[in-house]
């Protein structure tokens, strides 16, 4: 069985090497030498020696069921602060808004590749734990399963582009990652949901549906005045444009002819 994970060649210059950290040798209290006389007796218990430390009930993370953390929720504020640092990291050395979005996309990509496997292996229905092989099931998987896992709700709409048959549009009225973000005027074209676009791209690539790229665009302003008040109903509305490569569409056609 040869599963090859897609490895993306990044066109970005590599980040500067991390500053050399001067770790004091053997300074931590974890590996303090045991006093003479107790050495053999004490070091046989797993919790006192160096290396993996076990909780007192001997249950490590490996003993837990994979499905246990399915409904675990994380703090939104903690994510917001982490996301601030992720954006600050991506901003370091970014040439322009497009470059910044590409960097955020690259941060999300590996998450998508991993989440695809994780979510499929966690699904309770054995029939649903096969990788999607057609475009629509894949997009349904993204809009339902992936979105529910990440944000606790499904995506708001899924459409096929009228002009380009290779292009699909996934709508999110209020991306969770943008909840607290107000863009400065000089960066008004930026959409930080590029991170989510990277996750979606990772899922598509991991499932064997290579894309030309997934990008996030704000469309809230275009719908201005629909409700008559002048203000857009969803000011943060975002569309993810998913453009599949030609070979994906060719395969899709063959599969459609063969009846799936």
């Amino acid at each position: 069985m040869s599963t090859t994970f897609p490895i993306r060649q990044s066109s970005l210059p590599s980040h500067p090497p991390p500053r050399p950290q001067s770790l004091p040798p053997q300074s931590s209290h974890y590996n303090r030498p045991a006093p003479a006389g107790t050495s053999t007796a004490m070091s046989s218990t797993p919790s006192s020696g160096p290396g993996l430390r076990y909780p007192s009930n001997k249950k490590t993370i490996y003993d837990r069921n994979l499905n246990r953390s399915k409904n675990a929720e994380l703090s939104r504020a903690a994510f917001a602060y982490l996301f601030i640092e992720m954006i600050a990291y991506a901003q370091r050395g970014a040439r322009d808004v497009g470059d910044l979005e590409q960097r955020l996309n690259n941060q999300g990509y590996p998450i998508g590749v991993r989440l695809l496997d994780l979510l499929l292996s966690r699904s309770s229905n054995p029939l649903a734990s096969i990788r999607p092989t057609r475009i629509l099931p894949l997009l349904q998987f993204i809009a339902q399963t992936l979105y529910r896992h990440l944000f606790g709700r499904p995506a708001d709409a899924l459409e096929r582009s009228g002009t380009d048959s290779a292009q699909y549009m996934l709508f999110d009225n209020e991306p969770m990652v943008n909840t607290y973000i107000s863009l400065p005027r000089e960066m008004s074209s930026l959409n930080c949901a590029a991170f989510v676009a990277g996750i979606i791209e990772g899922v598509c690539d991991g499932a064997g549906f290579p894309t030309e790229g997934v990008s996030a665009h704000s469309v809230g302003e275009q719908e201005e005045g629909k409700d008559g008040k002048g203000a857009p109903l969803w000011p943060g509305k975002t569309v993810f444009l998913i453009k599949f490569k030609k070979e994906v569409l060719e395969r899709e056609e063959i599969l459609a002819r063969g009846g799936g």
Binding site: A77, A80, Y81, F83, I84, I87, A88, Y180, I181, S182, L183, P184, R185, M187, C192, P235
Partner: peptide, 23 residues
């Protein structure tokens, strides 16, 4: 604390220009 302090593009101690805070 939500819309100013959690905004990645706000620098602490600088004038606040955050659309979502205004809204």
């Amino acid at each position: 604390s939500d819309f100013v302090m959690k905004n990645p593009f706000y620098t602490v101690e600088m004038p606040i220009r955050c659309e979502k805070f205004d809204r």
